[in-house]
Design a protein around this nucleic acid. Sequence first.
DNA 1: CGCTTTTGACCCGCGC
DNA 2: GCGCGGGTCAAAAGCG
Length: 365
Amino acid sequence: MSNERKNPYQYDPFDYNHHEINKSSFPFFNYGNSSTYQNQPDDPQTLNGFESDHPNPFMSFTDCLHGSLDYNTLSKAFDMSCSSSEVISPPLDHDNNSNKQQAAAGVRDHSVGTTSTTENPSTPNYSSISSSSNEAAGAAGDDQVLDEDSDHKRKKDKQPKLGSDGVHEDKSKKGSKAKKKEKPQREPRFAFLTKSEVDHLEDGYRWRKYGQKAVKNSPYPRSYYRCTTQKCIVKKRVERSFQDPSIVITTYEGQHNHQCPAATLRGNLNLNAVGMLSPNSLLAAASLNGSARYSHEFLAQFFPVNNQVQLPNHFHDHPPSSMLYSNLMNPHRHHHHQQQQQQLHAPDYGLLQDLVHSFSHKQEP
DNA sequence: CGCTTTTGACCCGCGC
DNA sequence: GCGCGGGTCAAAAGCG
């Protein structure tokens, strides 16, 4: 959070090195689960990533939704189907502090061009998927690591409070400290950078805002949303880049345990059907059927809760940050008229600032 | 009436 | 130990 990190959000999605363009793979990764995120990011080996052999390139999308899919699968699948993908590598150096590097590594090269811009000429919108990481905690601080868990934890804390009459089911759990030692798992997170005039982008799911906080060094607040579906613990944070107010940073955490309400209703985004498609098609479907609004969630669904993935070798060889940039988003067909969506995927390092920063500060002279 | 948003308070972890 | 910042809660208000 130092000032030296000027323009944390400043980066040009269109201005990347292209030497890694050929690497078309899904940019998602995470730094592992409860056990791995504790590892020092300095050690690339601690990163979890993709494995090289995966049997089923076209696995059911539903599988993804249910977390049976790992990054490996994703990468594989997407890799295969994204011949036309365009991966853009941000000009990141390797000489940055290891933390950043590591974090950035997440995005590094596993970006998958979803659809080439030519494939979707009618779409002025560009999207990309950001990767995320549990490790975000690493950079962001453990509080984030505990996000999921802390959520419960806090509840416990609170519940006793309000539920003086009631539900302090387990104060014992309150022992957050004990829990902390175990470094409870947290859901993978995925950040999307979206060029949009609206803060809260519709993605087909229903969200309830449960909080808002001012962001340090930013005039724009960060909003906290939770999926309203019962038992669904997915959360997302939305904030606007103060460097580029046109960019909305949406961070998803967790994985929906249900279908996209909108998709279900419309029948457009039938997940089972989608499962029959190649990832590329999936993305296209996300774009076409759900329009830009669904893309976030849609893509987010791909990220398994299963944190045990490993980075491929080349992932380590080519440090951070290739950002995928593609235009699968359809133009504002729905209410968000002016919603020019330009999604860029960036790793979630926990703190959005850090997240974005990883991309940007490399571009600084 | 039910659901969502707002908002101040609170908790927690981390850095100093 | 203290202060800071992130994240969450929950009462109140707003909305359809």
